[in-house]
């Protein structure tokens, strides 16, 4: 029982990260609406932020902005740098995906995958 509680405490961040990742994957695969697919893709992307940032956290540490205390423990700054840029790049790619969705809607009149496949089969 004690082992279970401690393993939950130790791995909770990783498990929630995995849950978010899998939920995003499920939305991307199972849903036919392209806007919904892009929301799922965003959820997947944000789960990666958590995957990178949570191992860099040190309990009792502080943010990596240097202070005058010589005994201060700083959390790892490297994942922060990688994810900082990844967020903005993620937004740019999502915007590109939404642009494609808008063009598809103009040409086919729908953003549902099944209906688009039907259209292309008819032709």
């Amino acid at each position: 029982m004690n082992g279970l509680v401690s393993s939950i405490l130790e791995h909770y961040n990783q498990w929630v990260t995995i849950f978010l990742m899998v939920a995003g994957l499920y939305v991307v695969v199972a849903r036919g609406n392209m806007v919904k697919k892009l929301v799922g893709l965003s959820v997947f992307q944000t789960s990666v932020y958590l995957l990178y940032i949570s191992p860099g956290k040190i309990l009792g540490g502080t943010a990596p902005i240097l202070i005058d205390d010589p005994n201060a423990v700083y959390s790892n700054p490297l994942p922060h740098v990688l994810i900082l840029t990844a967020i903005v790049v993620g937004l740019a790619t999502i915007a590109l995906g939404l642009g494609l969705v808008v063009r598809i809607n103009e040409v086919y009149g729908t953003v549902e995958e099944d209906e688009i496949f039907e259209r292309s089969d008819d032709e």
Binding site: A63, I65, L84, T85, I87, V88
Partner: peptide
């Protein structure tokens, strides 16, 4: 350079 921030945050 002193507090949290930088080009990406400010740009957004």
């Amino acid at each position: 350079e002193i507090s949290p921030g930088g080009g990406f945050q400010a740009g957004v």
